[in-house]
Design a protein around this nucleic acid. Structure first.
Lengths: 112, 112
DNA sequence: GCGAGTGTACGATGAGCATCGAACATGTCA
DNA sequence: TGACATGTTCGATGCTCATCGTACACTCGC
């Protein structure tokens, strides 16, 4: 029941956060749309939200691009379930690579 | 002896790190030239290095622009001493506003 | 197989920003 | 006052990237 390997899944490439340069991490987090994705994702359990379920102020094509950037920066893991692509925030791994960084993003907009 | 207020100093505006949005901080740190300035600055005592003493791969005009961006992001404090403008890295204040962020930048290139 | 739903790939467009040279401003010292 | 050094400002240029519409690919249920 868990994770049938489809044709699409085979083309899905992930990046180990340990291999991500600081430059790439900062570039990924410098975009407000991408940060909002991360915050929204952090509010729910892993592998619940599909890409299309996010309320973003951009087109479908642009949203897809943002998810690809976040994945390449080691910030999220994706898994195909049927036609949907579910997302997981890589909290622990990314925190180990860049201590404190993700917390700043998730806390953005909170209080102050 | 300390800090004569010249005409130039009066036009020098600083930003309190506490007032800096995460967006501005990330934008400032996303540039490799600016990060190299911060790292170089962190290796020496406060208010020692003038803007012109940094070995940067850009023109004088561009370097000046980078210093202005860093100042606006609450990352450094500047003080005029004669024709030179000396720099101080605002470690503590910036760390208080964005815990862990500056440390990541300063550690970039170390080991690994 | 067909249709609907989901996501990606592609090519084009536009805005923002890093960059530069040159001119200017400021401060020091002779 | 003049010469020199330091740094900023200004306008122009080029590149990168976010954005979009469209077409395509994949998966599932009928």
């Amino acid at each position: 029941m868990a994770a049938p390997v489809t044709r699409r899944t085979r083309n899905l490439v992930h990046t180990d956060p340990a291999d991500v340069p600081l430059q790439d991490a900062l570039d990924a987090l410098a975009d407000p749309v991408r940060r909002s994705i991360l915050r929204e994702l952090s509010a729910e359990p892993d592998f619940i939200r599909a890409c299309g379920t996010f309320d973003l102020p951009v087109s479908k094509a642009t949203a897809s691009h943002h998810f690809a950037v976040l994945r390449a920066a080691g910030l999220l893991e994706q898994a195909d379930r049927g036609p949907r692509r579910l997302n997981r925030l890589r909290r622990a791994e990314f925190e180990a690579r860049f201590p404190g960084l993700l917390a700043l993003v998730l806390a953005e907009g909170t209080s102050r």
